[in-house]
C-alpha cells in the first residue's frame, strides 16, 4: 500500500504549520492536541472504508 500524495508541493507548508500548532505546549498538551486532530480529520474524511485503510497503515510497524 502506497498512499497517494495529496499534499504535493504544499507538504513543507503543512509540516511547518503542524509543528507551529504545537508551539509552547507541554508534551501532554501536545498529545491531547494530536488526539483532537485525528478525530477532526477523521470527521473531515467521513468515509469509514477509507478510514479503515488509514488506521491499518498507521498501525503497521507500531510494535516493530
Amino acid at each position: 500500500m502506497d498512499l497517494k500524495d495529496n499534499l504535493g508541493a504544499t507538504g513543507d507548508d503543512f509540516y511547518a504549520a503542524l509543528i507551529a500548532t504545537h508551539d509552547g505546549l507541554s508534551e501532554s498538551q501536545s498529545h491531547a492536541l494530536n488526539a483532537r486532530l485525528v478525530l477532526i480529520m477523521a470527521n473531515e474524511i467521513g468515509d469509514l472504508a477509507r478510514l479503515a485503510i488509514l488506521l491499518k497503515a498507521a498501525r503497521k510497524d507500531a510494535t516493530g
Binding site: L7, G8, L18, S30
Partner: peptide
Amino acid sequence: AIEALFRNEVLHLARDHGFARRL
C-alpha cells in the same frame, strides 16, 4: 519531544508512502 516524534514518524511512514518521502 513532539517535533522529534513527528519527524521520526514521517521517516517511518516514508518506507511505504510517497507522500511521507516528500515531507
